[in-house]
């Protein structure tokens, strides 16, 4: 393999790894925050559990989208570029 081609391949794999690794930190931290605060609320008011659970799932789904974007970018780096 030519040198430039192998450098490109290495950069592709490195970039995909970094994208997933760094990109998922924020999403994981955010989802943990949402879950911990929802549990705080549930412990304080157990009768609100149903609506808190639903709001928590929506909040986590929205928080998750940055992680999903980094997954899409990583897959595109590996398969399309």
């Amino acid at each position: 393999m030519e040198l430039s081609a192998s450098i490109t391949t290495a950069a592709k794999y490195l970039a995909a790894g970094f994208v997933m690794g760094i990109g998922s930190i924020a999403a994981a931290y955010g989802e943990g925050q949402v879950a911990s605060h929802a549990i705080d609320g549930m412990a304080r008011q157990p009768e609100m559990e149903d609506s808190l659970l639903r709001t928590m799932v929506i909040g986590q789904a929205i928080t998750e989208s940055t992680g999903i974007y980094s997954l899409i970018v990583a897959i595109m780096l590996l398969m399309v570029v």
Binding site: A61, I62, S65, I68, Y69, L71, I72, I75
Partner: peptide, 16 residues
């Protein structure tokens, strides 16, 4: 865009 990518990313990521 985010609505569709969320579902697609989860399902496709799991499948891969």
């Amino acid at each position: 865009i985010s609505h569709s990518f969320r579902l697609f990313g989860n399902v496709f990521g799991g499948a891969v």
